[in-house]
Write a protein that binds this DNA or RNA. Sequence first.
DNA 1: CCCCCTTTGTAACCTTTGTTACAAAATACG
DNA 2: CGTATTTTGTAACAAAGGTTACAAAGGGGG
Lengths: 209, 209
Amino acid sequence: MNLDNLKNVFEPKLLMEIQQFGTWQSFKEGDLIMDYGKYIRMMPIIIKGTVKVYRLDETGNEILLYYLSSSESCSMAYSCCVEAKKSEVKAIADDDVELIAIPHLKLDEWLCTYASWKNYIMRSFNERFIELLKSIESIAFHKLDERLISYLKEKQRLSGSSVIKASHYLIADELATSRVVISRLLKHLENSKKIILYRNEIKLLPAFG
Amino acid sequence: MNLDNLKNVFEPKLLMEIQQFGTWQSFKEGDLIMDYGKYIRMMPIIIKGTVKVYRLDETGNEILLYYLSSSESCSMAYSCCVEAKKSEVKAIADDDVELIAIPHLKLDEWLCTYASWKNYIMRSFNERFIELLKSIESIAFHKLDERLISYLKEKQRLSGSSVIKASHYLIADELATSRVVISRLLKHLENSKKIILYRNEIKLLPAFG
DNA sequence: CCCCCTTTGTAACCTTTGTTACAAAATACG
DNA sequence: CGTATTTTGTAACAAAGGTTACAAAGGGGG
């Protein structure tokens, strides 16, 4: 593995430091990368694959915060590192994942020595922030059918494929509703020739938009 | 005005710098502190009063992000400063507000020179983050009646008073629903002896909890 | 090839929330 | 004091989403 994805993000000297001080880690689909309550001493930068980040709220609901993919990082991990706190999130490999873990001492150091690092961190925070805001907007102002469509489009964008592999149950879970409701809405979309349903698969047709 | 509120947050030397480089600003209830599209070159630290921070989403809905009160700061402003971007948020004084504005050059500098500053910034990000997560949780998993009760309790906590000054219309707006619905739910709460309704006022009774 | 488990389809019904419409009360303001 | 504006109360209805229950189809493993 190499750090080519990061070439446009960091200056060469910082890349060398990342190479030197970072630790390579590999995970297989479904692997638990980080769990609630563990101490975080490293911040991950995703090189390959996709990571799902969850949070457990006070009432025991597990909520999907965001997906991390190539060259992205986890703001929650960062702020945990800086404050030396236990993890409030759980991270699971959504497919096979390669990442490089940066020790927390370097996080601090680079903030002062590399402008590109500081910008990267700030941009990460901002992107996660905007991401959450979009979630709120989506839940607060859009009906489930619209949200489902956005969800499918996002999956399409992330995977680069018009065939989405997911069960109705999984989708329901990520949209915080029930399976029956999702099945109903998907069936509507199929009836209007926007998608075709298979077992564990949804094919988006050209008419899907 | 003085910086006593910040004594427990920052070390004395940093306090002096804040005093020296920060600019005092006062606003009256309802004043526009920051608007969409303006360049942000200062980060505010609230000394007195409460600020409401809004964001405009793609579909034109204005959404209340969070309240800022004493010794708190606005993470959105911070990341805007660092990336020299235009404001994506609007800030309105909820009552009379005193704040001290820190020029963006100092933001960067202090990050390296004062550990307490770095921690403050990180904690701010984290708090806003958690705040948003709570919003999502609330909207996604709780029914309107529960959300209304939380809303009233939060207002009570922030103002320190059991009498909440707000019209049904305002509440409906902040919970992203319609006035009629809020009136209905409030009337239920009144009928069950939890609150008493007046014009522009809601009195929380002991039974409210 | 059979059994089991997961996934999907569908109906019927209930609850919550949103909408429209209209009236009455409170307040602001000239 | 009288009129305009804002705020609140309420009814009646519509729509969206949640729940329960049950059947059928698909796939995996022995």
